[in-house]
């Protein structure tokens, strides 16, 4: 257990010092700060534009971190041969892999927290979307983010770590570039699969008191879309930016179900990665 902890800390430090991580973080921070100027293009709903724009920036840059660092965290270690000194210590390969993955998870949490903090300060300056809280009478007012925004931040972390697990798995069986491409594809399909699934459903109408199918997509296509929808993860459930923009309360049940969904997929992907990594020749 201690070895996993040390490995996590070392990986986190390594990622934190990497150029790619800094670049994504700085870009995201520029975009979040720039959301103010974007919101000025509208006369109404400036706050909503800011929230939409910033949530998009935080999501996309964390997803990038998940994809690009996830596909290189073990791959580069093997390519640069720095892995040679790690796994020739009395360490199990799975321990090493868990350490690397948790290090990346810590880096994603770190970047999300930093981005959310900057976002919070921008909202605080604009005095939009922040909720005044007065815990005790006579004490200064504390401003908090609304519940859906905090839940959205949590979902961004889950989604990015999930994507990182996909990238890690691909990087163990193919090259870094291909792993990134495949992960982007999985992410894209995972985001549109539920919409596609809705599209191929038969269109029914009530005509003369009876339910009649007025349009039915090709059967083969329908089956393919259903299979993709069933097998590939549905990433769209982690996107609650509309709820966040309209401050719609997210129930605890929904949050719990989506977290369990994400974690179960991650564990499954990690077990497959671990099985591949244990059998892999590192030369």
């Amino acid at each position: 257990m201690k070895k996993i902890l040390y490995s996590t800390m070392y990986s986190f430090k390594e990622i934190k010092n990497s150029k790619i991580f800094y670049s994504f973080l700085i870009f995201a921070l520029i975009l979040i700060s720039g959301s103010y100027f974007v919101s000025q293009t509208s006369f109404i709903s400036q706050g909503r534009i800011m929230v939409d724009f910033s949530i998009f920036a935080i999501t996309i840059f964390n997803i990038f971190i998940g994809i690009f660092i996830g596909s290189s965290i073990v791959y580069d270690d093997i390519e640069k041969k720095s892995i040679f000194l790690s796994i020739t210590r009395p360490v199990k390969r799975t321990e090493y892999l868990i350490g690397r993955f948790l290090g990346l998870t810590a880096a994603i949490i770190f970047s999300t927290v930093i981005m959310m903090l900057i976002f919070y300060f921008v909202l605080l300056i604009m005095h939009k979307y922040v909720i005044p809280l007065k815990p005790f009478a006579g004490q200064p007012t504390i401003y908090s983010l609304p519940q859906p925004l905090i839940i959205q931040a949590l979902f961004i972390i889950i989604e990015s770590v999930f994507i990182a697990a996909v990238a890690l798995l691909f990087s163990l069986i193919t090259s870094k570039a291909l792993a990134s491409i495949f992960t982007i594809l999985v992410f894209f399909i995972g985001n549109v699969s539920s919409k596609m699934n809705d599209l191929v459903r038969p269109v029914k109408k009530i005509i003369g008191g009876k339910i009649v199918i007025v349009h039915q997509a090709n059967h083969a296509l329908t089956n393919i879309v259903h299979i993709i929808y069933a097998i590939l993860p549905n990433f769209s459930i982690f996107n609650i930016s509309s709820e966040a923009a309209y401050k719609i309360f997210i129930s605890a049940g929904t949050v719990f179900y989506r977290i369990v969904y994400g974690l179960s997929y991650m564990v499954l992907l990690f077990i497959i990665s671990s099985l591949i990594f244990t059998r892999k020749d590192i030369s």
Partner: peptide
């Protein structure tokens, strides 16, 4: 067992002492 690989390399951004301290913690 101690192993010295051919052409070893280390990650960017970490000092020599940080690297060796990490490896020392992987020992039993």
């Amino acid at each position: 067992l101690g192993y010295l690989p051919e052409n070893p390399s280390f990650p960017r951004g970490l000092k020599g002492i940080e690297i060796i301290s990490y490896y020392s913690k992987l020992l039993n």
